[in-house]
């Protein structure tokens, strides 16, 4: 391909990507890139000041997202993205902080931070790409692997009960919970937009094929097939009871927006509480940032 042809094929979201880091490391057929595209489009459709949007990722395939997004972006340690994002948001409340990471990072090693950030209604948008396994390290069983599915550390099939993430998040206190598959491009974009424009802890799970490992080990065909399979096997049920959202191996996937409610965020609650209790002694926090002039 000649250079000028390539120019014509400009990536429509390239102003939001670190093009000097492309090509990315994701496998052909991987769904993470699709979710990144949805995220970029959501960003463009909102009127957010993009200088004030920060992305935090942990470790894993999805953990690499922070490295490709051209915003203030932090590639942190395994499991700690939500805790890192908590500090970032609280230190500079004018930021919109998005945690973009995988199921293993967020719900496995980072599960404690995830539930506590939800409990506090920390003002974060968490995009959880769920590919049912630990992909970066070679397809090991995860907290989200469906029963019976094969993984490199569950070579005879998985017998551990997996997390139902929307249920976990609602129970923990998340004020916005949605689930889609990666092929629900517009729906994912819409959910991310909604989450970006609201306050509080928002959790969006996106079911995504892992072609190289999960699909191959479980003989589920190539990426596009699997993407299509997830899409075709999903059923939109907005407001569904999150207790009913378990995912079985190659079974039906209930998608939709399940939770969308108002509750004071950590910072709002803090300001309200201290204003009430301490009155004029309280130094209202987060309205003005004096740290740099």
């Amino acid at each position: 391909m000649k250079a000028e042809d390539r120019l014509e094929e400009r990536n429509p979201i390239e102003d939001l990507l670190r093009m000097d880091r492309i090509p990315h490391i994701w496998c052909p057929g991987c769904g993470i890139g699709t979710v990144v595209t949805s995220f970029a489009e959501a960003l463009k459709k909102t009127d957010l000041d993009l200088d004030k949007v920060a992305v935090v990722s942990g470790i894993g395939c999805t953990g690499r997202v922070a490295g490709y997004i051209k915003l203030d972006s932090f590639h942190t340690t395994h499991g700690r993205a939500v805790a890192f994002a908590t500090g970032l948001k609280l230190a500079n409340p004018e930021l919109k902080v998005v945690v973009f990471s995988g199921d293993g990072d967020l719900a496995g090693i980072g599960g404690n931070h995830l539930i506590h950030a939800a409990r506090r209604n920390m003002d974060l948008v968490v995009i959880c790409v769920n590919n049912f396994n630990y992909a970066m390290t070679g397809g090991q069983v995860a907290a989200t692997t469906p029963l019976e599915a094969n993984a490199s550390t569950a070579p005879y099939g998985n017998f551990e009960f997996p997390f139902n993430l929307p249920f976990l998040m609602e129970a923990a206190g998340a004020t916005y919970v949605a689930r889609w598959t990666a092929l629900h491009l517009r729906r994912v974009t819409m959910s991310i937009m909604e989450a970006l424009q609201r306050k509080g802890f928002s959790f969006i799970e996106v079911i995504t094929p892992c072609v190289t490992l999960y699909a191959r080990r479980n003989r589920l065909g190539d990426g596009l097939n699997l993407l299509r399979y997830y899409y075709d096997n999903s059923e939109i049920q907005h407001g569904a009871d999150t207790r009913q959202l378990d995912i079985s191996f190659q079974g039906k996937i209930i998608v939709g927006k399940f939770v969308d409610k108002d509750k004071p965020t950590f910072l709002d609650a803090m300001n309200q509480h201290f204003t009430r209790v301490l009155g004029d002694d309280y130094q209202l926090y987060g309205r003005i940032n004096h740290d740099r002039d």
Binding site: T76, F84, G87, A91, N92, L95, D291
Partner: peptide, 11 residues
Amino acid sequence: AALIGAAWGGK
């Protein structure tokens, strides 16, 4: 982790 985030948030 929150400390590192906060430092990068300017505090």
